[in-house]
Design a protein around this nucleic acid. Sequence first.
RNA 1: GCGCUCGUAGCUCAAUGGAUAGAGUACUGGCCUCCGAAGCCAGGGGUUGUGGGUUCGAUCCCCGCCGGGCGCACCA
Length: 584
Amino acid sequence: MTASSAPTRIAFDARQHLTGLLRAALDSVAPEQGHAEILLERPKQASHGDFASNLAMQLARELKTNPRQIAERLVRALPASDAVAKVDIAGAGFINFTLTPTARTAVVAAVLGAGPAFGRGPASRLKLQVEFVSANPTGPLHVGHGRGAAYGASLASLLAFAGFDVTREYYVNDAGRQMDILAVSAWLRYLELFGEAVPFPPNAYQGDYVRDMAEQVKLAHGDRYLHPVEAVLACMCETDDADARLDCLILAGKDLLGEDWAYIHGHVLNEQLTDCRADLEEFGVHFDVWFSERSLFETGMVARAVAALEKSGHIYIQDGARWFRSTSFGDEKDRVVQRDNGLYTYFASDIAYHLNKFERGFDKVVDVWGADHHGYVSRVKGALSASGADASRLEVTLVQFVSLFRDGQKASMSTRSGEYVTLRQLRAEVGNDACRFFYMLRKCDQALDFDLDLAKSESNDNPVYYVQYAHARICSVLAQWDGDQAALAATDLTPLQHEREYALCARLAEFPELIQQAARDYAPHALAFYLKDLAGDFHSWYNAERVLVDDQPTRQARLALALATRQVLQNGLSLLGVSQPVSM
RNA sequence: GCGCUCGUAGCUCAAUGGAUAGAGUACUGGCCUCCGAAGCCAGGGGUUGUGGGUUCGAUCCCCGCCGGGCGCACCA
């Protein structure tokens, strides 16, 4: 993020000012109601003023009085203010405030004064972690991971901008069966290259990238890992169960390769992780920490976590396995943490991982998961509670599935079969900007239909161009003017007096509030919608009023408004990882 | 079957418990001798799946029903 650490200096905060006026009126009219929360909302309709309060309606019950009467008493008690042009009582008892022109346009100077820091929240000491993507490094990222990446990255940026101390983390599942399956898949493909064709299991990784890795190994190490097909088959067990057969093949690999198994395993892991990292970097998605699952085993953290649960009496043994009594914590059934073969389950390392997160001192931990993991939330929270941790400090946001549509046809997605559209393919086809923005056009808990043809189209169908176009237009008019932009911060704004100018100013003033609200709701999509609205207000104004007019004061004021708009577009788009082109 | 989740304009989607439920798209009709027409202006379009409840007020909160998605491993 480019924003400086300078605090946002809002020359005039209308909301805060009006809240103060209402508070004073309330103290005078009904001092015993001092606890009442004073809310000001921005009315949808311009005729309802700049801000509206429902305070009178909220008090109606306790005061046993008609809300309109309360509103009248409150309005009479309001202290005088030179920022308020008009106060109306409307509807069921709304108090509507209309600001003076000066108060309305003051935001322009505030934006230009703060620059990249406009909208930035006050620095909080709260340490917050966002863990996202965390896809198994067993193949290329697909478009579903892309949504998690775009959401998590935008969310993390948003939270940081809102004032939190944010750490972005990727949990690498480098221990466990899936990695073994990938390793054995690559090894079998490698054997094929020598004509030793062991029938390739249907539940192994089918993608071409597995063959590519096999080629690399052959190129670098020749026949070092070669074993005759008979030797492999000799290790096979008699079973019809596909998963059991796959496990046999893994055991065969480990037996035949001995120490070399670790090389194959490490090689495929490294290849996939490197690829994944590069993919995300190109997508503008950066991580501060890549956390290894295996490290949890190596440091004994997993064993410690299970032992702690055992000590507190939440573990029992049945059928040779170690079970966590998660039903005591709201889960629908108890869960195995250590299998009868002695191996820990993924759940066990995940308990350890989350305890580790808290041990690292995060006040709040946000996990971004695929929606197919929703059943997992209660057991992880349960385990945290059982371990004496405060489970409410863990926030799990679930990102729903993505369906790709091309020519109205739904593209199939299956990681194991290798038949899926990768994030790379998607980025190459529609571009990073459209990709990042498109992912943000839906709340994360809604399934997303990603229309490739629409995202690709260079037309006004495509909302990302609409926003970027506003930015490019402003750049263009500023270039034609060719004056001193820095001087615009001190411009006299009184020539701004059209409704469209006030509307645009109100939109700019909304930005800091929107940041806080979107951060609180973990809802970066709200920022995307805001930017569309902002661009719309700008286009409307720009089309109706000329900026580079002959009258100098008017020209300067409009240039200042345009420059402030560009600043907020930049601040917002950069949070979403979308570029701000000077021309298109 | 049980659990979670979502049903809003023809389509894609918004809306801290607030006023006449909003955008975009599509459709219809206008606007470039004028700072970028990837733009703007105007118009028609809705019983917010359905039936109850809570209250001054419900798209939002609670319950039932209908419909879609996901999950229900000693996989991750």
